[in-house]
Structures are given as C-alpha cells and as structure tokens.
C-alpha cells in the first residue's frame, strides 16, 4: 500500500517536472538568427545556449568574485545601461584604481564576430574573458584561482550542476557559460532593425532617411549593414600617444599598434571615431612587418 502511494507520488512529481520543463522551454532562452542577418560565426553546436547556462553566465558576468580583490566585475566596465560599453572614461580602470590602456568596447552581436579586443588578438569568444581576468590593470586574477573560488561557493556549485550536469567548476565551463550570456546581447530590435523589417516603431523621418542614404553611400563599405561592421581593422590615422605607450606593458605590445577593430554604429560610444582603410592593406602591412603611417595609409586621411 505504502509502495503504491510512493509510486503515485513519484509519478505525480514526474508529471509536474515535465510540465515545468515544458514551461521552461516555452519561456526559455534560445539563440535565434534575426531575419535578414548573416549566419553567426560562433559554433553553437559546441556550446548551445540553455536557460541554466545563460543564468550561470549572467551571475558570473556581474560577480566581482572574478577579480583578485573581489571589487570589479565584467559589468564594472561593460555597463548594461550604456549598451555594455564604458562611457565617461577614455581608459577603463580595474582593481585598486589602476588605469588600463584601452576603453572597454561595447558587447553586442558577439556571435558574428571573428576576432576580439581592439587589436584582434583573441580568436574566439570563449577565450576573450581570459584577457580582462588576467590583466594586471583590470581584474589581476588567475583562472586557476577563479575556479577555486567558484568551487568553494555553494551557490555556484548549484549553478554549475544546473548548467552542465556536474557541480565541479572548471575553466572550460566558466568560459562557456560566460559565452552563453554574452551571445544573447544582440541589437536586432533597434529602430533601424524595425525599419528594415517594416515593423511597427520602425518609422524614419525624412531627415533620418537622408542620413541612411548618406551613410550607405559613404560609410557602409566598412560599416556593413546590418551589423555595421565588416569585422576588419582600420588605422585610425592618429599618431601614437606616448603617454599611453608608457602605460602599456611593452612585452605585450612589442610594436606600436595603430589599428583598431571597426565597431558597429551602436558601439560608437568610445571617445575616438575610427577612420578605416582596407583590410587587405592592413594584412599586407602586418605581413611585411612594416608600420603604417597616417596620411600615407589611412583612407580617411588621404
């Protein structure tokens, strides 16, 4: 009798769980390629975005535990309110008031990006968080210690079990979860996107339509729609700032870098607008080991 009662309760719980998971799927996180957008670069088959993975990534993104002294999180510089960019600061700053050598770029439409960081030094979204975590001017922490701290936390052990079926945090799983969160920060509901989709709220005034025509004629060759970047690199035409050269670690930047990744229009909140030149010229220059000089090479200066 007791046994059948238990069986009944177990079956009821099973039904409840099934309904619950159904609800989860219905309301859940899923990456969808917006209509009219190109195929993403990121390989989702290796790291499918799930509710639990996204939630874990979200917790990690906003958690200062990732920094050595637990004062700075990813969101300290990638501010949600300003499109995950760092406004009001020419250079982003890390723990203990240390000033970095770059302004944190906006995070959006990352699934379509082939390279990361201003100089394109990082080749995969999963590996990008290693740079701010380990940079002395930013979080000044090691991945080994991040993983130690995560494994010491009951909350994270629960979140890792929910996301990956195993409560043990590893470097790999930490990075995959951060990717799952970041991959969902997309711009496909801007007024521009609604205009393109002819959706309600996407009406452009005559002046805005003129602006779009001018943009398409003069800017869109590199700031390619709908992502407003071709993922290439441009010479901003400015001389090297010697104050900045003094700040940066020479072993990491053995040669002066004058190139920065072309950013989408939504991300153009950083203080310097970046003129661009053709990617081929950049590759040729890098391959030859020569340095490009503004005026001779920067398209906008010519």
């Amino acid at each position: 009798m007791l046994r059948s009662k238990i069986t009944f309760i177990v079956a009821l719980c099973g039904l409840f769980l099934a309904l619950l998971s159904f609800t989860d799927v219905k309301d859940g996180i899923a990456f969808v390629v917006p209509e009219g957008w190109p195929a993403p670069v990121y390989d989702f088959s290796k790291n499918p975005v799930t509710d639990a993975g996204f939630q874990l990534g979200r917790q990690l993104f906003y958690d200062p535990l990732l920094s050595r002294d637990t004062t700075v999180s990813c969101a300290s510089c990638h501010l949600q309110a300003t499109g995950f960019a760092h406004v009001d600061h020419a250079l982003s700053h890390g723990i203990g008031g240390r000033v970095g050598t770059r302004n944190a770029p906006a995070i959006l439409n990352m699934a379509w990006s082939k390279t990361f960081m201003w100089d394109g030094g990082v080749n995969h979204l999963d590996m990008q968080p290693l740079s701010p975590i380990t940079s002395a001017a930013e979080m000044d922490e090691t991945m080994e210690n991040v993983v130690r701290k995560l494994n010491a936390s009951d909350k994270y052990r629960r979140l890792f079990r929910a996301a990956f079926g195993d409560s043990l945090a590893t470097g790999q799983k930490t990075l995959l979860a951060l990717s799952q969160f970041v991959l969902m920060l997309n711009s496909y509901n801007s007024r521009y996107d609604k205009y393109i989709r002819k959706a309600p709220g996407g009406e452009f005034s005559a002046q805005e339509l003129n602006g779009l025509a001018i943009f398409r004629a003069h800017c869109a060759a590199c700031h390619t729609e709908p992502l407003f970047t071709d993922g290439g690199f441009g010479n901003n035409g400015l001389p090297v700032d010697t104050a900045l050269s003094g700040l940066r670690a020479p072993q990491y930047h053995p040669k002066p870098r004058r190139f920065a990744q072309i950013q989408s229009a939504d991300a153009a909140q950083h203080p310097v607008h970046l003129p661009v030149h053709a990617r081929r010229a950049f590759q040729k220059t890098v391959a030859s080991g020569a340095t490009l000089y503004p005026g001779r090479s920067a398209k906008h200066n010519a």
């Binding site: 790291n47 995969h124 290693l130 990717s179």
Partner: peptide, 24 residues
C-alpha cells in the same frame, strides 16, 4: 585546437598553458 574556443581536460585554460592577450 588553437581556434576552437574553451576546451577541457589537459587543454583547460586553468592548466597555465594558455596565452590570454594573444590567443593560443
């Protein structure tokens, strides 16, 4: 292996054999 994102086991970035600033 160098362009495939976050890997596990002996390739886990916590093993101290990974460059952050210039991937690989």
């Amino acid at each position: 292996t160098n362009v495939s994102g976050a890997m596990g086991g002996d390739l886990d970035p916590t093993r101290g054999m990974y460059w952050a600033w210039n991937t690989g």
